Simulated assay, not measured.
Amino acid sequence: MINGAHVIIYSQDAEADRAFLRDVLGYPHVDAGHGWLIFKLPPAEVAVHPAEGSGSHELFLMCDDLAETIADLESRGVEFPDPPEEARWGILTTIRLPGGGDLGLYQPHHEPAYDL
């Protein structure tokens, strides 16, 4: 029986991004050995979108109030390279990770599936 999902974020600076998840976002974690931290994520849901070719995968964190979440994270030094954008399914933006990658953040307009 499947009992969870494991998400991988590839990074140019894994140490910095691990520290960000641990210290800035405050995610609980376990050490899998040699500093490889595995983080507990908030409840999750998965959607399947059409794609041409082999497609790709994305990770978006979700919040109840995007403006409030942005203000809180900016007070902790988090950089947002893109202003919030209204989409049919929610309001979204991007968090810049210390390792240079981006992580999606959005406030959904739909009922979250993780409460089902």
Rank of each mutant, 00 (worst) to 15 (best):
R18D: 10
R18S: 15
R18L: 12
A19S: 12
F20A: 10
F20D: 08
L21F: 15
L21H: 06
L21N: 04
L21S: 05
L21D: 07
R22Q: 15
R22K: 15
D23T: 12
D23P: 07
D23K: 03
V24N: 06
V24S: 10
V24I: 14
L25V: 04
G26Q: 09
Y27G: 01
Y27Q: 04
Y27I: 04
Y27A: 12
P28W: 13
P28V: 13
H29K: 01
V30T: 07
V30H: 08
D31V: 06
D31Q: 04
D31P: 03
D31H: 05
A32Y: 13
A32C: 06
A32L: 13
A32D: 08
A32M: 11
A32W: 14
G33S: 09
H34G: 11
H34Q: 13
G35S: 09
G35T: 03
I38W: 03
I38H: 02
F39W: 08
F39N: 00
F39S: 02
F39G: 01
F39L: 02
L41Y: 03
L41K: 00
L41H: 02
P42D: 09
P42V: 11
P42W: 09
P43A: 11
A44K: 00
A44R: 00
A44S: 11
A44I: 06
E45W: 02
E45L: 00
E45Q: 11
E45T: 00
V46L: 12
A47N: 03
A47D: 10
A47H: 05
V48A: 08
V48C: 03
V48M: 07
V48E: 13
V48T: 10
V48S: 08
H49P: 00
H49W: 15
H49L: 15
H49A: 13
P50K: 04
P50G: 08
P50E: 14
A51L: 06
A51E: 10
A51N: 04
E52C: 05
E52V: 09
E52W: 12
E52R: 04
E52Y: 12
G53T: 10
G53P: 04
S54D: 13
S54H: 08
S54V: 14
G55M: 09
G55I: 09
G55R: 01
G55C: 08
G55E: 08
S56W: 08
S56V: 02
S56Y: 12
H57C: 11
H57V: 15
E58R: 05
E58F: 10
E58K: 01
E58G: 06
E58A: 13
L59S: 01
F60V: 03
F60Q: 04
F60W: 13
F60H: 08
M62H: 02
M62Y: 09
C63G: 07
C63R: 02
D65C: 11
D65A: 14
D65M: 10
D65K: 04
D65W: 09
L66K: 02
L66S: 05
A67V: 07
A67D: 14
E68F: 05
E68G: 11
T69E: 13
T69P: 00
T69G: 01
T69W: 02
I70Y: 03
I70N: 01
I70W: 07
A71E: 13
A71H: 05
A71K: 04
A71C: 05
A71N: 05
